[in-house]
Write a protein that binds this DNA or RNA. Structure first.
Ligand SMILES: [Mn+2]
Ligand SMILES: [Mn+2]
Ligand SMILES: [Mn+2]
Ligand SMILES: [Mn+2]
Lengths: 221, 221
DNA sequence: TTATGATGTTAAGCATGCTTAACTTTGTCT
DNA sequence: AGACAAAGTTAAGCATGCTTAACATCATAA
């Protein structure tokens, strides 16, 4: 029912709210969607009018029940497409996000249900995010923390990666930092919060900004 | 590069031109796309400016080389998706056109090439229309005539069906009039040009408007 | 050949989703 | 508290792709 733009707004608001539980700010969405703050302010009014958002000026936004339902629908489409493109059509880890970003707006419920069935009703997408089920319920995610919050000297396994920048994805794929791989956190510079990690075959230094995108669980020894 | 609207305009112009070789009229496109004539006139000017059309007022439209290239691209996406949805995801004959009508605008060249490869580089879609190859070349179609031009007393096999109305498609599927099936043309009323056909299991009367959508080849006995 | 209806085009206006520029509110630091 | 910068909002305007209404051209038949 909503337009393509509105679907992307609603999805983005959900994702930010899901990160920290706080009302989502205008600037965050503007930055993510690469439009100006004023576009967000205007759209927020419309989405609130249409019942998708709770919004009061200067106070940020929260999805209503109805908005959350839309968000689940779009995330379901996005994440099932990502998995399908990798599993069935052989696209690579770093290509699927951009394709899914478009396909998520052109897929009927009946088609996405067929894809879900074809894949065997998977619970997680290729980057470790949970796939909303047909009933709108989001599978429980394994406990994980961002690499920025980890302790030097420990080993971790990759649980989830924020896939929204495909250049970053291509880099992580290249160095072998993919889902389920192990890493050892060997150092952190307090100068810039950059970290040093050991993967299977080599050692890499990652900036704080990169480390923020990577979510891990403590390795069970 | 063109917008979704423009892609649909260009595709529609190609299809009409392909039918009879004449310059395509404003009304035909307006009728097909369910917009007013004035929307077509305006868009024709823009598409001509952008180099996709030859167009002079009151004289109809023809695609340029550049317009034809776009048309091939969109038809390729549309028809490969239709086949893929049927072959891989199990959608039915009458469902795929509407899905493909949306997906054709959200599919990168690299993704559609993967689909093409997955299907084994097919030459025809599920309704008998040729699928443009990666190089933009349209496979040669088997010689066929509309059911309206057939002779009473002969047998024919179904070569192609115009799939743009999904209610009609569902009806044809229901009565077993699908690709490659045989029919015997037993009667024609000159009163309304309706025809009577015998399929494997039963006899049906089809209006002229329906018969126009069905293309057949004389059965080799 | 001229009237007439069908077909096609233009003009004005609207909704959507953006922009920039001007203005308002908020949070923070002194 | 007061000042200042950051964040957010509003106003005005633009492009796209439609609409309706008015106007232009075409085809054709008396
Ligand atoms: Mn993604
Ligand atoms: Mn999207
Ligand atoms: Mn079709
Ligand atoms: Mn389309």
């Amino acid at each position: 029912m909503p337009t393509i733009s509105k679907e992307d707004y609603i999805k983005t608001i959900f994702n930010f709210h899901n990160e920290d539980g706080l009302p989502v700010t205008t600037s965050k969405i503007a930055n993510k969607l690469e439009v100006t703050n004023s576009a967000i302010s205007e759209m927020a009014k419309k989405l609130a009018m249409e019942g998708y958002l709770d919004y009061s000026k200067y106070k940020g936004m929260n999805l209503t029940r109805s908005g959350e339902k839309v968000a689940m629908q779009i995330l379901r489409r996005h994440r099932l497409w990502e998995l399908f493109l990798i599993e069935v059509l052989g696209l690579s880890w770093d290509e699927v996000h951009d394709e899914a970003e478009k396909l998520e707006h052109s897929t009927s419920d009946s088609l996405i249900d067929k894809i879900d069935e074809y894949l065997g009703f998977p619970k997680f997408d290729p980057h470790g995010s949970p796939i909303p089920q047909r009933n709108g319920i989001l599978p429980k995610i394994p406990k994980s923390i961002p690499l920025t919050d980890c302790e030097v000297g420990n080993s971790y396994s990759i649980v989830r990666v924020n896939d929204s920048d495909n250049e970053l994805m291509a880099y992580l794929l290249k160095i072998g930092l993919v889902l389920s791989s192990s890493l050892f956190l060997s150092d952190r510079l307090s100068f810039d919060n950059s970290i040093t990690i050991k993967l299977a075959d080599a050692t890499y230094s990652l900036s704080e900004k990169v480390a923020e995108q990577i979510f891990v669980a403590e390795e069970i020894l």
